[in-house]
Each structure stands twice: as structure tokens, then as C-alpha cells.
Amino acid sequence: MENVLKASNSPHKKASWTTRSIMIDVLIALLPASIVGCVYFGWKALLVLALSVVSAVATEVVYLLACNKSFKQIIKQFDFSSVVTGLLLGLCFNSTVAWYVVVLSAVFAIAVVKMLFGGTGKNVVNPAIAGRVFAFIAFQSIMVGGYVIPNFAENAGVVTGATPLSALGSMENLKLFLGIGVAGCIGETCKAALLLGYIYLVARKVLDWKWPVLTILACGLVTVCMRGFDFTVFLPSLLSGGLFLGAIFMATDYVTSPKSLWANVVYFIVLGAVIALLREATNIEVVSFAILLMNLFVPLFNRFIRPRPFGYTKAKKAKEAK
């Protein structure tokens, strides 16, 4: 019997979730947005998503193979985070994007942003965000133009304006919420689908309900303040652009958000404000830039906003100062 006994360090009983199960939960939460995106934008959207996911996963596998990992090992350790990255990145493109842009961004996101820094958990910025920003800067002409309004809307066709941000307040809120007749990326138009994913993640306890709410509210309120307390822009500012996608799925990425409770509170409020400020400053879609910027500040948040141990006293602090 001695031979079969196993030993481990305490605790011997652990929660059932794993990194892989969390990533699969995120994928499930992204399903509604992906499906709606494919319905709105047609088979081309599906192609973009598939291409993005496949190239992201392929990049990771090739990278690991190049690091002398056996194929068996790779499959055993595969945690689906590259699928999430690929899908998120795909959702950030519009359906008319050229195929090589998708592939190159996915390769950049996984190889440069994630794997070069050490793989899952070690990346400094969110790979999907970095991939999107890479595409935006490297292929500006393709990314800025070519936004498609879903084909069943009255005014179907290609528009050059990015998102309805340029016409803040002129769209109907319900249309914005459902993404009907809204030009934009595959994943960001239908807020209802994103909200569904949010509810799923919160119910599965993968995501703390507070963080997206804080970001979105902060963004809305700052916009209202800057527009001279005009509360009519509140809802449109929330519902337009990639704010929902960014706030729910991108900014809340575990690796690139602060670790402790209060650091997170401050981080997400600041993030919302930064999005609002950048939106006022420019006409392009800024959510990804704002998240990228804030990602770089995460170590500072981690270092300076930390919880106080249970039973922490001021007297101890004075003692330490000596």
C-alpha cells in the first residue's frame, strides 16, 4: 500500500477551478458577442475570428516547439489563454479587414507580447490589446477606414468614420445597445451580447462584478462633466465604441490588472477617466490605447496600494519608521 500513497503539501483539498477552466469560461462568455458579430457582419466575420484564433494558437505552439517542448507536453499544459487572446483580437477587427493584418497582429500578440515575456501570467500588457494597437499603428489606412454597418440596416454600406463616437449623442440608445445600424468591430457593436457574457462571468465568479461597472461609470461621468454636465450624453457615451468590450473582457484580464482590492478600485476608475479624456481629445477608437497605457502602470498600483494585514496598527508603523 505504501507505494500508492501520494504526498502533497497542505491544503490537500483545493477548489476545482484551474487556469484552463477560467479561460474556457471566458470563451463561453465571449460566445454571444461572437455569434451576434457573425450574424451582423456575415461569414466574413466568422472568417476573421477563426483566422485570428488559429494564428494565435499556432503561434504559441510553434514558439513552444522552438523552445524544445514536446508536442505532448504542449497539449498537457495548454491552458486556452491563446484561444482567448485570439478571439478577443478577432473581435476587435472589422469584418472587411485584410487577412494578413489579422494574422500578423495575432502573431505579434502571442509571440512578442506574451511568449517573449515568459508566457501565460508573465506578460506586461494584454496581448489582445497590444495586437490591436499594433494593427492600428502598422496598418492605419486599413484599420481606420472600412468600418461596415451591419447589412440589414437601412443605410448599409462601408463608412469611413470609426465608431459613432464622432457623432456622440446622435444615435438612439436602444439601437446602440443592440448594435443595430452601428458601424464598428465584430465584437463591440452589440452591447446586449457583451452584457450576457458579463453576467455569465460574474455568475461563475470568474469576474468581480465591480470592475467593469466602475470603468464604465467613471467613463460616462467624466464625459458628462467635460460636456458641461450634459446628462444626455451619458448613455450614448457608455454604449458607443469598444467601451463594453474593453471594460468587461480586456481591462479585467487577471494578468494585467492589479492584484488587491483597493488597487483594483482605483485602477478601474482611473481607466474609465482616461478613456473619457482620450475620447475627448481624439476621434479614433481609444479604449485599447487607454487600456494599454494603464496596463503599464499596473506594477505601480500593485506596489503602492496594498492591503493592510489583519490587526495592523499605527503604532507598528511608527516603530517601523524608526
Partner: peptide, 28 residues
Amino acid sequence: EVSLEEPTPCISCGMCAQVCPMHLMPMD
């Protein structure tokens, strides 16, 4: 009943800090 999974890289989810009864930062 037992958990014998191999450790995988920390993903900084912050769950450990969320459950720590002493309010510490176990991931650090």
C-alpha cells in the same frame, strides 16, 4: 478528494488576496 495537480504559472487573479483572512498578499 485530493488535489495533486502540478502548479501552473500565476495568472495574478488576486483570488488569494481576496480570501486571505490575514489580509496579506500571498501571490507576492
